[in-house]
Deep mutational scan, measured.
Amino acid sequence: MQGVVKVNSALNMRSGPGSNYGVIGTLRNNDKVEIIKEVDGWYEIRFNGKVGSASKSYITIVN
Rank of each mutant, 00 (worst) to 15 (best):
N63R: 11
D40Y: 07
G52S: 03
R28P: 03
I45Y: 00
I45W: 00
I24Y: 00
V62Y: 08
F47Y: 10
I35W: 01
G52Q: 02
Y21D: 05
G25I: 09
K37H: 09
N29V: 07
T26Q: 13
G25L: 05
T60E: 15
N30M: 10
G22H: 13
T60V: 14
S55C: 15
K37I: 08
M13I: 15
M1K: 12
I59K: 00
E38C: 09
E38N: 04
R28Q: 13
N20L: 06
R46S: 11
K6W: 03
G25Q: 08
G25E: 12
R46G: 04
I24K: 01
R28I: 10
N63C: 13
Q2T: 13
R28E: 10
K56P: 06
E44N: 09
G18F: 00
T60K: 13
W42I: 01
K6T: 12
V33E: 01
K37R: 14
E44Y: 10
Y58I: 07
Y21L: 04
N12V: 14
V23G: 02
S9Q: 12
V23S: 06
S15V: 07
A54C: 11
I45M: 02
V23D: 05
S19Q: 13
I35Q: 01
M13Q: 03
N20C: 12
V23Y: 05
S55Q: 15
K50I: 15
W42N: 01
K50L: 15
A54F: 04
N8Q: 12
A10L: 14
S55N: 15
S53N: 14
Y43T: 00
V62W: 06
W42T: 00
G22V: 12
I61T: 07
G18Y: 00
N20A: 10
K37S: 14
L27C: 05
V5L: 03
E34P: 01
E38F: 05
R46A: 09
G16H: 02
K37F: 09
G41A: 06
G18R: 00
N20R: 10
V4Q: 08
G3Y: 03
W42Q: 01
N12C: 14
G52E: 02
K32V: 15
G3R: 02
G22D: 15
K37T: 10
M13F: 10
E38T: 06
A10V: 15
E44W: 14
G18K: 02
F47H: 10
E34R: 06
V4E: 06
Y21Q: 04
I61N: 04
G52F: 02
R28D: 07
I35T: 01
G52L: 02
I61R: 06
T60R: 11
V7R: 06
M1V: 13
G52D: 03
I59V: 07
G18T: 00
N63A: 13
D31T: 08
S9G: 15
L11C: 14
M1R: 13
K37Q: 11
G49L: 04
N29P: 11
I61A: 07
Q2R: 12
N12F: 10
W42L: 00
I35L: 04
A54H: 03
K50W: 08
R46F: 11
I36M: 10
K56M: 11
D40T: 05
L11P: 04
N29K: 09
G41R: 04
K37M: 09
N8D: 14
V5G: 04
A10I: 15
V33I: 07
T60F: 13
D31P: 01
T60M: 12
K37V: 06
I36F: 08
V5D: 02
N12H: 14
M13S: 03
E34A: 08
L11K: 10
K50Y: 09
L11V: 15
G16Q: 02
N29H: 10
R46E: 09
G41K: 05
V62K: 05
S15K: 08
I24E: 04
M13V: 15
V39P: 01
W42A: 01
S9M: 11
K32C: 13
G25P: 02
S19T: 14
Y43E: 00
N20V: 06
V5I: 08
D40M: 08
I59N: 00
V39F: 11
R28A: 11
V7A: 12
N30F: 08
N8W: 05
N20Q: 14
V33L: 04
P17V: 04
V7Q: 03
T60N: 11
G52I: 03
G52T: 02
V33D: 00
Y21M: 05
V33W: 02
P17H: 05
K37G: 15
K6N: 11
M13H: 04
E38Y: 06
V39G: 06
G41F: 06
Y58G: 14
F47P: 01
I45Q: 00
I59D: 03
G16P: 02
N30W: 09
V23P: 06
V5H: 02
V23M: 04
Y21C: 09
Q2W: 15
V39Q: 10
N20K: 10
G22M: 12
S55D: 15
Y58K: 10
I59A: 00
G52M: 03
E34W: 13
V33M: 03
L11G: 07
T26I: 15
D40Q: 08
L27S: 01
G22A: 14
N48R: 11
N12G: 11
G22Y: 07
Y21W: 09
I24W: 00
V4R: 09
V4P: 02
V51W: 07
S53A: 14
G22K: 13
Y43N: 00
N63W: 09
K32T: 12
R46W: 10
G18D: 06
G22L: 12
I35P: 00
V4F: 06
K6R: 13
Y58V: 09
R46V: 13
E38R: 03
E44T: 11
I59L: 03
S19K: 14
V5W: 00
A10P: 13
S9A: 12
V7D: 04
S9Y: 10
K6V: 12
N48I: 05
M1C: 14
S19Y: 15
N12P: 15
D31Y: 04
M1I: 13
G3H: 03
L27W: 00
V4G: 02
S57Y: 14
G41V: 04
I59H: 01
T26R: 11
G25N: 05
N30S: 07
K56V: 10
G3N: 02
S9L: 11
V7K: 10
S9F: 12
G25Y: 04
V5Q: 01
S19L: 15
K50V: 14
S19E: 15
F47C: 04
S57A: 14
S57G: 12
T60H: 13
V51C: 09
P17R: 03
I35E: 01
T60Y: 12
M1E: 07
S15P: 01
A54V: 15
S9P: 07
N63S: 13
N30G: 15
I45R: 00
K56Q: 06
N29A: 09
S53F: 15
N29L: 08
N63P: 13
M1L: 14
N63T: 13
G52C: 05
Q2C: 15
I36A: 02
I36C: 08
G16K: 01
V7H: 10
G25S: 07
T26P: 05
I24A: 03
Y43R: 00
S9V: 13
T26N: 06
R14F: 14
S15C: 09
S15A: 13
G3F: 05
A10N: 12
S9W: 09
S9C: 15
G18S: 05
E44S: 04
I59Q: 01
L11E: 07
L27D: 01
V62R: 04
E44A: 04
S19A: 14
A54N: 02
E34D: 11
S57W: 12
R28Y: 13
L11I: 15
E34L: 11
Y43M: 04
N48F: 07
M1Q: 11
V62L: 13
V39R: 08
G49I: 03
R14N: 05
I35V: 11
S19I: 15
Q2L: 14
V4K: 07
E38P: 02
I24H: 01
A10R: 14
N30I: 03
I45K: 00
A10C: 15
G16T: 02
P17G: 04
I59S: 00
V23W: 06
E34V: 11
E38M: 07
Y21E: 05
Y21V: 03
E38K: 03
S15W: 05
I61P: 09
N63H: 13
S57T: 12
N8T: 13
G16E: 02
N30Q: 09
V5T: 03
S53E: 03
E38G: 04
R28M: 12
G25K: 04
V62T: 11
K37C: 13
G41N: 09
Q2G: 07
N12E: 15
R14Y: 15
R46D: 06
W42P: 00
I45C: 03
K32R: 14
N20E: 14
N29Q: 08
N20S: 11
G3Q: 02
Q2N: 10
G41T: 06
K6G: 06
Y58F: 14
S55T: 09
F47S: 05
S53Q: 06
M1A: 10
G16L: 03
